[in-house]
Design a protein around this nucleic acid. Structure first.
Lengths: 338, 338
DNA sequence: CGTTGGCGCTCCACGATACCGAGCGCTAGC
DNA sequence: GCTAGCGCTCGGTATCGTGGAGCGCCAACG
């Protein structure tokens, strides 16, 4: 749709603008590598590019700035064999060599690491596993009327619920209930209604029933946080308007917005959403780069980067791709022989 | 040290500055309630206040701005019977009426709630309980070589560690190890070296030993996050310099800085630290208001607010006090009959 | 016919200037 | 000791002018 020269010019404009954040003039582009034309020619071409919606002028007789459509073309024309810079590869290697520990910690650390790697805000979203095999269910009596339900899923996710019982219950009863629950529920699928047949002791059954009820995710009893955001402070450097910063940070704090944003982008088969392409209005000046990660061959979550529309797409795409892959590997560790 | 009139003038200046963020002139103050003097008199007094370090002029012949010392006097002269506004009380009531669920979730929700209540950033720091009674310890086999250790403490804290075993271990062995671990460790104090005598099966002992080792907090195996920060986006509105915002957000992401900051303020017996009073340089334009909360009469953590030096101290103090008290109550629920 | 050099035009950014008003310090009088 | 008033100092804003970046258009050229 764009001839070679227009494409080259558009790419040059985008690159220049990403570097400088200033409207790009025809002269700057005419000296771009791979282009040997006069600025006048560039002007003509830019004119056409503007007519076609790839560029805009902030005002008459100023340089050009890419539109979302312009960025989109730029991103789509990137060669997919992105490679990280050596120093970044090194960082990735040492991080994942040292990284260990429990799932939540791992995801949270990864989000922070990715933010540091790219200098943008990073998100890690853990898919709620469905179906999720229950590896362990246990009841712990905290006080006479409060019992903690701890469920471990096959992925290593630990779900917690407190049960508040109507009447005080002895620790022994809780122990019995715990055993009974474990016996009937382990191996089942989390999130589906579960049946535990009544036992001989009604007291025990009360506790078990409460636990089973808590296992079925209700409308408000949503799961533990499944989003990990790192490097929000980096959004402050990305914009110069305080209002924009505030909006973006605000949105970043609304976890469900983030989750559905990431999900939406993935569902549309994209790995990059630019500016208004995603529907989230307060993030109109932002782009998001996502890549799902897989544990043992199954999709398990997504890592992503949120940055200004004028972000370094090539490096970010590479970083997100590499980190998602390595994260998946790290989480699959020792699992291939299940 | 300050006569009544100077104190009244200083208070008026601080209040006015907090509202307007503009240097306060003598005329504005002379009409303040409780003051019936001419602006000239106010000027004289302000002059003295500036000489004594309570006020500064941004430049010659401008109004006055409070110094940290000025804020300090203001805060210290607040009557401690702060009360929330009715609408806020209502919010607190409904929040804690609806609030339930597991400890971590509770603390995280509280930080967000407090941020919304005050319109500043809120932090909740959970003290690492010491000594912490172990209520439950359990091993769950995730893969043949990876075992998840789940420990429940008396406070309801759930600690998780993954153990990577050198050799594949059968689930049955893990089960045995889990039972053995529970038998010997429940009731002990978390964080101290624990002894589990060797059993008849060396295989089981290997797993148990790994678990015991993981229970002793090593230098790098620090605990799960114990800080919950809410409302960071509100810091963006508090300042107009992007650089400041970035610095503050940066600092807010460094959890250990936050923890030691809060701890430090409490250790000095303060409930408010203003500007440079706390040593954290990037937060020089911020004040922090803290209040510890108690569960079952024992200190269990701290809630706090981070805002600009020119924050609404009276309301914030009240909010922090109320929320810390209610949080403590909520977490003690059903515990008085232990 | 595409490309290019050139010309004129537009508009922003920046500095200089002037002006206004807020607010102070000081002093003289009550 | 308080107050009214005067003069002075600055910062903020508006106005103006200028320089330069960059465009659009056109005519000429290969």
């Amino acid at each position: 749709m764009l001839d070679d020269r227009k494409a080259a010019i558009l790419r040059a404009v985008v690159e220049e603008y990403i570097e400088t954040a200033q409207p790009v003039g025809s002269a700057a582009v005419s000296h771009a590598p791979g282009l040997a034309v006069s600025s006048a020619t560039v002007r003509n071409e830019m004119n056409a590019l503007e007519r076609d919606g790839y560029l805009v002028q902030p005002h008459t007789s100023a340089g050009r700035v890419p539109t979302d459509k312009g960025y989109r073309f730029f991103v789509d024309s990137l060669t997919p064999n992105q490679r990280l810079e050596p120093s970044q590869s090194e960082q990735v290697r040492t991080f994942f060599a040292r990284a260990h520990g429990e799932l939540e910690r791992m995801l949270s650390d990864t989000s922070r690491f990715l933010a540091g790697l790219t200098d943008y805000a990073a998100v890690v979203v853990r898919d709620s596993e469905d179906p999720a095999r229950i590896k362990s269910a246990q009841l712990v009596s905290l006080t006479s009327q409060v019992v903690l339900l701890v469920v471990v899923l096959a992925s290593g996710v630990v779900e917690k619920r407190t049960l508040e019982l109507p009447d005080p219950v002895d620790e022994v009863v809780v122990g019995a209930a715990s055993a009974r629950l474990a016996a009937h529920v382990v191996g089942d699928t989390y999130g589906r209604p579960l049946g535990v047949p009544p036992s001989a002791t009604p007291e025990v059954d009360t506790v078990v029933d409460a636990a089973v009820a808590a296992l079925v995710p209700g409308p408000d009893s949503d799961h533990q946080p499944q989003v990990y955001v790192g490097g929000v402070s980096r959004m402050a450097s990305a914009f110069d308007a305080v209002g924009t910063i505030r909006q973006v940070l605000d949105t970043l704090e609304q976890q469900y917005v983030l989750v559905s944003l990431v999900k939406d982008v993935l569902d549309r088969g994209l790995s990059v959403a630019i500016g208004a392409e995603h529907g989230v209005v307060p993030l109109a000046d932002c782009s998001i780069v996502v890549a799902p990660y897989e544990v043992e061959g199954e999709p398990a979550g997504t890592v992503g980067i949120l940055g200004p529309t004028r972000m370094h797409y090539e490096q970010t795409l590479a970083a997100v791709a590499v980190v998602s892959r390595r994260l998946g590997q790290a989480l699959s560790k020792g699992a291939e022989d299940r």
